[in-house]
């Protein structure tokens, strides 16, 4: 009896309250940015009046916007590329030759949680006087973003490799005369397409969301621009935040879509469903 009350009344109620808690802040932000009605004047009757994307257009036309977005896109590209170059060979190597080192490597990839962005940037400030030639460049953020993204990127590549029969693939490729590099490029990478895609998307999400390091080092990335632009034009700043949220959410949804059907298919093939 108690179970039924829980299922019929309590559970839906909890879900409803949760949905409200998670949706309301987003709605409020959208309304503030895109509806040209002050909160004080807001009634149920004019809730759908005067919505417009104009604040977003004016943010786009700010001359700093293009530069900030270009920098963030460059950072995302560099971070994704270096993450892949670093992780794919390393994790392949671990799976093939050092399976016992896997948990050690995994532990290392959660170190960015131990040394959070604010701790990391404190360290960068110490090094800065000795490495100005490097840190003065905006692109010097790339390696630090690679590190920040490690907990995500490692997991995506690692689970992709786990799903492969790596040993057989490599033995077949090697016995047919491929060297290590050609094996990775022509045999392993094509089989890892989904994992590589998630890895790249995750780095984009990390780069689009990172504010701490850029803020302290005074690098004008997209999130830093967003924070600054809000000062002069709140509506436009909030509009940019919505835009970055939409992009990030799409990224996570795409990752969910591309990585799920395959594993479900495999599970069905194994007969466990």
């Amino acid at each position: 009896m108690r179970g039924r009350v829980f299922g019929r009344v309590v559970a839906p109620l909890i879900l409803l309250v949760a949905a409200a808690f998670f949706i309301l802040p987003l709605f409020a932000m959208m309304r503030f940015a895109l509806q040209n009605v002050q909160v004080i004047d807001l009634r149920w009757s004019n809730l759908f009046d005067k919505w417009s994307l104009a604040p977003l257009w004016s943010a786009f036309s700010d001359d700093q916007f293009g530069r900030a977005l270009t920098l963030s896109l460059k950072l995302a590209f560099g971070t994704g590329l270096i993450s892949l170059l670093l992780l794919v060979p390393t994790i392949v190597w671990v799976h093939l030759r050092l399976p016992r080192a896997r948990s050690t490597v995994e532990f290392l990839t959660i170190l960015p949680y131990v040394i959070p962005a604010i701790g990391m940037v404190a360290g960068i400030m110490v090094i800065k006087p000795h490495a100005r030639w490097f840190l003065n460049s905006d692109l010097s953020l790339i390696p630090f973003y690679v590190v920040l993204a490690l907990p995500f990127t490692f997991r995506s590549i690692d689970s992709g490799l786990k799903a492969l029969d790596l040993r057989t693939l490599v033995e077949a490729s090697r016995s047919l005369g491929y060297g290590w590099i050609r094996t990775i490029v022509h045999v392993i990478v094509p089989n890892l397409r989904t994992a590589i895609l998630s890895c790249l998307f995750l780095t984009v999400a990390v780069v689009l969301g990172e504010y701490t390091i850029a803020d302290v080092l005074l690098k004008r990335t997209f999130p830093a621009f967003m924070g600054e632009y809000r000062g002069s034009d709140p509506k436009g700043g909030y509009g940019l935040a919505i835009l970055s949220l939409v992009v990030t959410t799409l990224i996570f949804m795409i990752i969910g879509l591309v990585s799920r059907p395959k594993s479900a298919r495999r599970r069905r093939a194994r007969g466990t469903i």
Binding site: L86, W93, L98, V105, I115, G119, M120, V126, F144, V147
Partner: peptide, 21 residues
């Protein structure tokens, strides 16, 4: 030795800043 590039990267961009702190 296969782990050297990965470990070197971590040392350079995470461990060195942490130790500097």
């Amino acid at each position: 030795l296969g782990l050297v590039p990965f470990l070197a990267f971590l040392v350079l961009f995470l461990i060195v800043p942490a130790i500097s702190v």
